[in-house]
């Protein structure tokens, strides 16, 4: 098992490791069976499969919403099996999560929504202001921080969710159907954002069954079928991708810690 944690040939380290993971829900439904895969620092991967294939379950295990029935999951330096309940909040602060239904607080302003992880983690007002602005700028919503999420379009709401997910510079970004109800143009825009995060060292895992979207990019693609990993397609070249190199250098600085904190 130790070899899994050695640096791979590109000199990168594993950030996410699934080691013979099975998940059987309480109702007896086997959602994942003997799942093995790793992801490295700054890697971008899609996870796909039919409805009920187990995509969301993978993310639930990574967020410790659920615990595996057997096998081990490692993420961002933690063995999730050894994680005690009271350690979960601190572990979750190392993850950015984007949900299909946004999970925004509609009685709070956009600013307060994005600031929430920072408030929880105890940042100073000065840092909160600086980082929230940087994150909103990154997703193109600077100037809308005073609005309620209800006053935003679906795509804008999704981008608020993304800003909240990356505002505390997590080493890992997880997204479940992040483009579920968006038009192709917006979907491409959001994928572009995710890719940029991976370029500054964030490990990005996106669960989606939007095959049309996936086919536009040449990224790693994990395919699940009835809880089993049936295909693990690796991108053909690390430097070839469907994205422009549209890096925002300011935000890159913001994310610099991601390189140093998330390694297993």
């Amino acid at each position: 098992m130790c070899n899994r944690f050695r640096a791979n040939k590109k000199g990168r380290r594993n950030v996410i490791v699934f080691n013979a993971v099975s998940k059987r829900y309480e109702n007896g439904r086997e959602a994942l069976a003997n799942l093995d895969f790793e992801m490295q620092t700054g890697e971008f991967a899609f996870i796909t499969g039919h409805s009920g294939a187990g995509k969301s379950t993978v993310l639930k295990l990574l967020t410790v919403i659920e615990r595996p029935s057997s096998g081990e999951v490692f993420c961002a330096g933690d063995s999730l099996r050894r994680l005690r309940n009271r350690e979960i909040p601190y572990y979750r602060r190392k993850l950015g999560m984007v949900f299909q239904n946004h999970q925004l607080l509609f009685d709070r302003s956009v600013f307060d929504n994005v600031a929430l992880p920072l408030v929880i983690a105890g940042y100073s007002t000065y840092d909160i202001n600086r980082r929230v602005r940087a994150a909103l700028d990154k997703v193109g919503l600077l100037g809308k921080e005073r609005l309620s999420p209800l006053q935003l379009s679906g795509g804008e709401q999704q981008r608020v969710g993304i800003a909240r997910a990356v505002v505390n510079k997590p080493p890992v970004l997880l997204a479940d159907e992040p483009t579920g109800n968006l038009d192709p143009e917006l979907s491409a825009e959001i994928m572009g954002l995710f890719y940029q995060f991976s370029q500054v060292g964030v490990t990005v895992l996106v669960a989606t069954h939007d095959l049309g979207l996936i086919s536009r990019y040449d990224h790693r693609l994990l395919t699940l079928h009835e809880g089993r990993l049936v295909e693990d397609y690796q991108e053909t070249s690390e430097y070839e991708s469907g994205f422009e190199e549209a890096r925002d250098h300011d935000f890159e600085d913001e994310l610099d810690v991601a390189h140093t904190t998330g390694e297993v």
């Binding site: 009271r86 909040p89 601190y90 929430l116 992880p117 929880i120």
Partner: peptide, 16 residues
């Protein structure tokens, strides 16, 4: 309830 779920998801401790 919804708010509590979100806070827990983004790393809020029980004390928080």
């Amino acid at each position: 309830r919804d708010e509590i779920v979100v806070v827990k998801l983004v790393g809020g401790t029980n004390a928080f």
